[in-house]
Structure formats: C-alpha cells, structure tokens
Amino acid sequence: MALTRDQIAMRVAQEFQDGSYVNLGIGIPTLAANYVPEGIEVMLQSENGLLGMGRYPDEDEVDADMINAGKETVTAITGASIFSSADSFAMIRGGHVDFTVLGAFEVDVNGNIASWMIPGKLIKGMGGAMDLVAGAKNIIVTMTHADKHGNSKLLGECTLPLTGVNCITRIITDLAVLEVADGAFHLTERAPGVSVDEIREKTAGKLIAADDVPEMQF
C-alpha cells in the first residue's frame, strides 16, 4: 500500500537525530513535526527569522508579530531565538541547519530538483527554497512517487525550471526511500506491501535496487 501523507511524515521524522536543527517546508514536511520519535529533540527553524518554532497559539496567545514562514500565527518554544532574515539565511546558506525537508514537482538522478515553477501557470515565487537547497547539509525531498496522472516524478532529467542542482541526496515518497548518487536512484526501503517492480515501473530515471529491499518500519 502506498503511504498516506502522515505516514510519509512519520518516515521522514525517523531521519532526525537528537539535537538537530530542522527546517520544514509547507505541506507533508510540516506534518513531520508531529512524529518526532520519543527521546529525540529537534529545534525547528522558520526562515523568516525564528529558531525554536512551537505549536500554534491558543486564542488568547495569538500575536500578529509572531508568525512562521508560511505566515501562520505560531508560538516560540522555551529557548527559542528570533533574528533578522539575513541572519536566518546565514544559518541556512552557511550550512548550519542540519535537515531541510521540502516537497518537489520533480527530482532527477543527478540530484537536481524542480519545485517552484510550472511554465504557463502563475508564478508565485521561490521564497526561500533555492537558498534552502543550496545550503542545508541533508535535504530530504518528500513527494508522491508519481503525479495524479501516473507520471513519474523521479526522472532521468528534470523538465521544469530548477530550484537547485546536484543537491538532493534522499527522497521519501509514498512508495519508497531512495538515495541519489552516481547518476541513479538507489532504492533503500519500500513501503509495506509495495513491490520493487511497482517502484521500478513508477521510476522514470535509472533505478538501482538490490534483490532484497527491506520494508519501511513504523
């Protein structure tokens, strides 16, 4: 069975190490904050200028001056810090953020990612995505393996305008966990009940898979 959005987020959260600084993009990545394993502490970075992002506020805590990068009202955890957007991107670009998790339209075998623009459709802008993929030590892409028409999003070469080049090393989809290296996708885990053949069929770029690929554990 393909994973649900929350199951993808659960698998993402298993990647985090205790003491990690993590930036989570909008969508499935944000859900990962709900599944950080017991005994692991992470600090969430929000690129508008907040390290130590907390939960959403109660009604009486709502403060227009306290928002996250998605422009939602939030709170700060004990021990948080707040700073300028220049300092925030010094953290990101300077490689100080341990994990960045973001969505994508396409990823290819050379670690290129396209996530911000579909020509012919309205362009809303890249926000901080280009800085994040240029700077983070570990970038995890979360997405469905194929689009709603069944077209693979794991390609030999991205077709859409890029967000970054040679930067993606790990992809977690609804079907699989894959590493990107040496011009190929390397299948390391598959979703429970999903066969290597199905993953191969839905991966347009070169896929390398061992005879025995373990299932994800939850």
């Binding site: 300028s84 670009r93 926000g127 995505a129 800085d131 240029a134 700077g135």
Partner: peptide, 23 residues
C-alpha cells in the same frame, strides 16, 4: 530568492556592491 534578497539589502547597506552565492 529570499536569502539572496536579504543579503542584497544587507550588503547594499554595508557598502558591498555584489557577492557570490550558490543559491
């Protein structure tokens, strides 16, 4: 890009006319 924009302003205010970034 957001970080490039922040740095364009930071650098502009600091008297640095241009900078290199991987972004």
């Amino acid at each position: 890009p957001q970080g490039t924009l922040a740095e364009k302003l930071r650098a502009g205010g600091a008297g640095i006319p241009a900078f290199y970034t991987a972004t």
